[in-house]
Each structure stands twice: as C-alpha cells, then as structure tokens.
C-alpha cells in the first residue's frame, strides 16, 4: 500500500474513534470507549453498542461506498464531473423510500423505508440497463441514467405534492436530506451485504478503468470487454448506492468531490484512485457526521446538508484551480 493510502487509512481509523466519542450523552471520550467493551457501564454500554457504534460504522462504510462509486464512474465515463447519482440509482432508491413514507409504511414496519429504497434501486438499475442496451457505450448509459433520474425525481415530486398530510411531506423532505441518526446494527446488517458485493464488483473493473484512460478503442484492443465492464460497474454502483440510500437517505457531493481532491495525490491512475477515494469518502462522511452532532446537536442537522456545505466550496475551489491552469 502506498503512503497516501496509509495516511488516509490512519485518518479513517482516527475519525472512527472520534465518532464513537461524540454524542449528546455527557460522558468523557475515554469512558465512552471503555463502555463499548465493558458491560459494567450499564446504559452507556447500550448507547455505545446500539447507537454510536452502528452510526460510526455506517458513516465509514457509506462514505467509502460513495467515494468508490464516484471514482469508478468518473474513470468509466472519463469525466471528472461524473458522480454516482448519474446512473439514476440514487434517484430511484429515493423514490422507493418516499413511496414508503408516503404510504405510511415507515410507521408500520421499521424496515419498510430501506426495503422500498432497495426495491426502487433495483427497478432503477433494471430500467437503466434496458434503456442503455447491452452493446451501448458510455454515452447511452449517461442518457439512460439522466432519463431515469428525471423520471424518479418527477415521481418523487408527485408523491410530495400528493402527500396525505404536512407531517408526511415533512418526513419525506427530511429523509431526502440524508441522516445517520437513529440507525441500529440491524441497519448495518441490511446495508453491509450490498456495500460489500458492490465493492467486489467494482474491484473487478479496476484494470478496465485504467485501460479506458486511452479511450474505448484502445481499451478494447488491450483485451477489455467493455460491455462486461459496464455491466459490472452499473451493478456494483447500484448495489452500493441502493444499500447506502436505503439506510441513510440521499447524500450528495461525496462521490463527486472526493475523487477530484485525491486524483493528484495518486498520480491520476483510475485503479489507484478507487481505493483512495473509498478511504477519502469515509473520511468526508465521518467528518460530516461528527459535524452534525457537534455544530447544532439540538437541531438534528441533516448529513446531506453538511456534505453539500463542505462539498460546494471545495468544488468552487476546484473550478477556480482548473480555470487558473487553463490560463
């Protein structure tokens, strides 16, 4: 492992520990960490194991998934503006969740929202693959993704428009801002298989993404099967984004900004950027999740708001840098 990855891994670990120590309960960080393993702390152990631990795990895992898929899609599309939402999966997952909230499913079944989000993601990815065709290139994938995103966004707006009461509408709007509050180890168990399966699928595309640096023709003549690569990438992204959106709602900017920041540090090689971005995504989401608990602990600040607030200025800086480089 290279120096950059080692530094990023150390930072992920450090933030994981910090994340475990942050919360409304007025206890020292050392006591919190001890309570995680020592049941003699009573309710504090329960707080640590049932509330803070799943939250810290999900912040790292979902952040990593968002960073990984962002880097993979930017590599595949050879476009630094690509992000996981581009293939329509996050939009359709959000629509599935909104339907559950709209229909009051969240009240009856605790996992109604995540399961509907996963169903939405599955529906979205099937439609995108059907629309893009089995032999189409990256352009048809983008067009199909935009079409499905637009449709999902329109249907989400419709659900919001027709929401049965202001509370349901409020709940939908808040859910769409993304949050890691009130998640349990069951949520970890629900999301983990999807995140892991997606990461494995995307890992198999690393070499193809490197070859695509030189364009589709060159990649094909280096032995890369582009149709297979695209299928693996779409399925991997769908699994990760579906799993992440199901438990944490829609969280933007991580997949867009993190690969951008880290690209120069790994020599811009797409395969190396995948893992660096996964670590970078974990760092960004952990930071954002710590921020929502520290800045305004009593106001339930939403995670998506913070990632956008961190992401937008970083992005503006990148635009400024690009313009300066272009002279």
């Amino acid at each position: 492992m290279m120096r950059v990855e080692v530094c990023l891994s150390a930072l992920v670990f450090a933030l994981f520990i910090v994340s475990l120590g942050v919360g409304p309960a007025d206890v020292s960080a050392t006591d919190s960490l001890r309570a995680l393993f020592d049941t003699s702390y009573g309710p504090l152990t329960m707080v640590m194991q049932e509330i803070r631990l799943p939250r810290a795990i999900l912040a790292a895992l979902i952040g990593a998934g968002l960073g990984l898929t962002g880097a993979a899609l930017q590599g595949y599309l050879r476009n630094p503006l690509a992000e996981p939402g581009l293939i329509g999966v996050s939009g359709s997952a959000a629509f599935g969740a909104v339907l559950a909230l709209h229909g009051g499913l969240a009240m009856g079944a605790v996992f109604g929202v995540p399961l509907m989000a996963l169903l939405g993601a599955l529906g979205g990815v099937i439609l995108v693959l059907l629309l893009a065709g089995s032999r189409g290139g990256s352009m048809t994938l983008i067009l199909a993704g935009i079409a499905i995103s637009a449709l999902a966004s329109a249907l989400t707006s419709l659900a919001l428009n027709l929401s049965p009461n202001p509370f349901a509408a409020n709940e939908i709007v808040f859910w769409m801002m993304g949050s890691l509050a009130d998640l349990s180890m069951t949520h970890v168990a629900l999301a983990l298989p999807f995140l892991m399966a997606g990461a494995v699928l995307i890992a198999t595309t690393a070499r193809g993404l490197d070859a695509l640096t030189l364009g589709e023709d060159a990649a094909q003549t280096m032995g890369i099967n582009l149709s297979r690569l695209r299928l693996l990438l779409v399925l991997g992204t769908a699994a990760i984004i579906g799993g992440a959106t199901a438990v944490a709602g829609a969280i933007g900017f991580v997949g867009l900004v993190v690969p951008h920041i880290l690209r120069p540090l790994v020599g811009a090689q797409p395969s190396r950027l995948l893992w660096a971005s996964a670590l970078g995504g974990a760092i960004m989401l952990q930071l954002a999740d710590i921020a929502v608990r520290v800045i305004l602990p009593e106001r339930d600040l939403k995670l998506g708001v913070i990632t956008a607030l961190i992401g937008a200025p970083l992005f503006l800086h990148l635009i400024y840098k690009t313009r300066r480089d272009l002279g």
Binding site: R78, R207, A211, T213, L214, M222, I224, R263, Q269, P270
Partner: peptide
C-alpha cells in the same frame, strides 16, 4: 485520447495490461 494526467511511465505501462 489521454483522459487523465497520468505520468508517461504509467501511460506506457498500460500497454502491459
């Protein structure tokens, strides 16, 4: 087409894929 600012050594090494 060279999509990313990779070093010349890495670019040439892509030929070994």
């Amino acid at each position: 087409e060279i999509a990313w600012p990779i070093s010349i050594e890495r670019l040439v090494a892509l030929g070994r894929i």
